[in-house]
Structures are given as structure tokens and as C-alpha cells.
Design a protein around this nucleic acid. Structure first.
Lengths: 223, 223
DNA sequence: GCAGTGAATGACCGCCGGTCATTCTGCGTG
DNA sequence: CACGCAGAATGACCGGCGGTCATTCACTGC
């Protein structure tokens, strides 16, 4: 009697279709302006049903965001599969992240919610834990590459891999966030091309965490 | 007949006392959890009165945030008054920013609202413009110093001053934001001391925007 | 003291996140 | 085939909140 398994599958697919609807609405309206009623309508379900699968609006938001996180991780894994040198892998990581920002802007915007001051208060423990786990695997991907680089002498050994990863991620993501929201302001009021700034910032940071050997290879790869 | 002027003064002081109340509540609860009713009660005014002085909750939030911005600018100006060398001034700027983060954490948290994706949609034009102006003067303070450094040969001339300022500000503020919200998570799950990471990141970035001469002076100042 | 003006009030509105008594559905059983 | 029951789905409803506006209040200048 495979009834129980079928029920399980149906439950999963229902969860997915709810995320589909939520994604549509969140992408269009953002967290604040989106309403659970609209998501329910888009999903062709009653509002109450949404709450059978997700505790709160924020939980649902996080579920959508997680899709983005997983997508990004997949893209990073694809880079690793190419078996490039450490330096080139790092360059590709940065390019991939920038590409993700450009191609999947809606997902990227959702990441911002993560850094909200009272963020953790608004989300259920379970969802939070799942998110942490996903995040953790992303960090591990990058630190793995960096540790290899340290062993082969292209990455500075006096800095910890995870610290390097945090600095690179944080800097470039916050710059992209700024590009997203204030590009025009900066172009007009301060005549700055933030896209250029992002490229410069990435290169400066990559250089500064590399040894001379690494820097040499880097400059050959970024002309 | 100084009546009109007195009225003007009273209006101003009323606005200030509303901000006082709003600050108290926003500091305690954050933007989402704070309510206009509570702010009104704290200010000992009716809710309707708040709306005679500020268009919306977000506008009021921004008014409080602006106090923080002005405070930070004052602290930066104090650094400039000390007439240090360019390199030392930049080091002090970074230290001042970190100090601001530690001493005035509540103001700092409010800055986060700035980067929210649909932020500009929630705030009145007038408030936004005032905010931009204040921001602009902050950028100018820093770029002034950087330009001097370029002239005297401690700051790289192949990077624009405003770009350097943006990179430094963005990197360190986003790292601080992370420290604020995820310090314990990183310490426990990844055994990273983000405060250390911040110091490292600041030094790496400062180094990377300086000439050899600048770097030399920097290393003498950061032991 | 008496208009008149502009500030202050708080009852009220509409909206939205979230709940829960009720209804519906389909499976297993007699 | 009929029946009963578990659990899924529903949507009317609730409380709270941002924002409004007709009414009241306070002060000024005549």
C-alpha cells in the first residue's frame, strides 16, 4: 500500500507549488508589499492552507530565498568541476557571483533580508537551521579551494581561509547591493561607475590575499 | 511681534521631541516591531499629531537615522581637525567608524534600512533628498583626504578617490553588520572571530589603495 | 471678551498576517 | 457498496497597525 509514500510526495509537490506562487509574488512586490492573500490566490489555494505548510510569511520568504542559495551553490560547484587552478577558480567564483547578481537579481535581492537586524526573531528555528546548513556548505566550497591555494603557495598562509572567504563575499555582495539600489544616484551625483568599482574592489581584494606567485598568475588572468 | 519666530521655534522643538520619542522606541524595537501608537504615547502626543510633522513611519525612522549620520560626520570632522597625515587620517577614519559601530550600535543598525531594495519607495522625496545631502558631505570629507594623499604620493593615483571611499565604507560597514547579527554563529559554527576579520579586512584594503610610501607609513602606524 | 486661525486630538477606516471551527475528500473497513 | 473517519482544505473572522479627518482646543490679535 504505497499510499503513505504517495501522500508524502503530494505534500512535497504542494510545498513546491506554494513556493512557486510565493516566488512570483515576492519577486514582483518584495517582502513588505507582498501579501499572503495574493500568494494564496496565485497558488490557487486558500490562505489558511499556506499556513499548513509554512509557519509565517517570513518562513515562506526564506524558503524562496533558499532556492537562490542552492542555485548559487550549484553554479559554484560547476566552477569546481572545471578543475582550474586555485587562482583561476577564485577569479571564476567572483565572476560567477557577479553573474548571479546580474542574471538572478530577484534572488540576490532576497539575500538582503538575511542581514536584517532582528531577522532571526521573525523566522522559525527549523527554517533558520536549514538555511544555516545551506550557507555552511557554500562557505566550505570556497574555503576548500583557498586551503588548496595555501598548500600550493598562491594564497597567503597568514590569513585563515574562512576569513578570506568572508571578506570577499561580504565586500562584493554589499557593493552589488549598492549597485542595485543606488547605481543611478552615484552616477549622477558623484559621477562614479559602481560596476567599475566592483571590478576594482574584487581585484584589489583578491590580490591582497595572495602571495606574489598568486598575484603573478592573477594578473595574467585578468587582462 | 516675535510671535511667528516663536511659533517656528516651537515647531522645531516639537519635531525634535517627536524624534526623541521615536528614537527611544526604534532603538528598542526596530522598524518593524515599533508602532506609531507607542511612539505617540512616548512623546505624550496623539498619534495624529505625529503625522502633522512626519509623513510616515519610515520618514520618522529616517529622521532618527539622520541624527546618527550627523553624529558620525561630526566624529569624522573631529579627526580632520587633528591635522594628521593622510595615512594616519585614513587609519583614524576606519577606527572612528568602528568606534561608532561599537558605541552607537543602535544608530548603526538603522543604516541598514538604507540598503533595503524598495527603500526609496517608502520614503518621501523631501526626506530622501535631505538624506542624500547629508550622505554627500560624508563622502566629500573622505575624498578630500584621499585627494590630498594622491597629491602627496601616499595614495594610488590610478584609483578614483570616490571609488576608494565607496570600497572602504561598503566593506567595513557590511562586515560590521554581519558582526552585529551573526558574530556568535560564526564563532561557534566556523570558529571565526569576525572582529579580527574586520581589522584584517580594513588593513588589507587600506594597503591595497596606497602606494609603497603610504604602505610604509601605514605599517609603522598599525603595529 | 470675542472671533478666527492653526494646532492637537482620537475615533475611525481599511488592510493584512494569522487562526480555527467547519467542510470536504478519499481511503480502509464491514 | 455504504459508511465512518482522519486529515487536508477552506474562508469567515480576529486583533493590531498605519494612516485619516471631522471635531475640539488654545492662543493671538483686535
Amino acid at each position: 500500500m504505497g499510499t503513505i509514500q504517495r501522500k508524502e510526495r503530494e505534500k512535497e509537490s504542494r510545498k513546491e507549488s506554494i513556493i512557486d506562487a510565493a516566488q512570483k509574488v515576492f519577486f514582483e512586490k518584495g517582502l513588505q508589499l507582498a501579501t499572503m492573500d495574493e500568494i494564496a490566490e496565485t497558488a490557487e489555494l486558500a490562505k489558511g492552507t499556506l499556513y499548513l505548510y509554512y509557519r509565517s510569511k517570513e518562513d515562506l520568504y526564506l524558503a524562496v530565498m533558499m532556492r537562490g542559495l542552492i542555485l548559487l551553490r550549484t553554479m559554484f560547484e560547476a566552477v569546481i568541476t572545471r578543475q582550474l587552478t586555485t587562482v583561476r577558480t577564485m577569479v571564476e567564483f567572483m565572476a560567477t557571483f557577479t553573474g548571479f547578481f546580474e542574471q538572478h537579481r530577484n534572488y540576490f535581492r532576497m539575500f538582503h533580508f538575511f542581514n536584517t537586524p532582528q531577522f532571526h526573531k521573525q523566522v522559525s528555528e527549523a527554517m533558520m537551521a536549514e538555511c544555516d546548513r545551506c550557507n555552511h556548505t557554500l562557505w566550505t566550497l570556497v574555503t576548500g579551494v583557498l586551503d588548496r591555494g595555501k598548500a600550493e603557495g598562491t594564497i597567503r598562509t597568514d590569513l585563515s581561509a574562512i576569513e578570506i572567504a568572508v571578506v570577499l563575499w561580504t565586500s562584493s555582495s554589499s557593493l552589488m547591493m549598492r549597485i542595485d539600489s543606488q547605481r543611478e544616484l552615484f552616477r549622477q551625483k558623484l559621477t562614479v561607475d559602481l560596476d567599475h568599482t566592483l571590478r576594482v574592489s574584487n581585484i584589489l581584494l583578491l590580490e591582497s590575499v595572495m602571495t606574489d606567485a598568486g598575484r603573478k598568475e592573477l594578473s595574467a588572468n585578468t587582462i
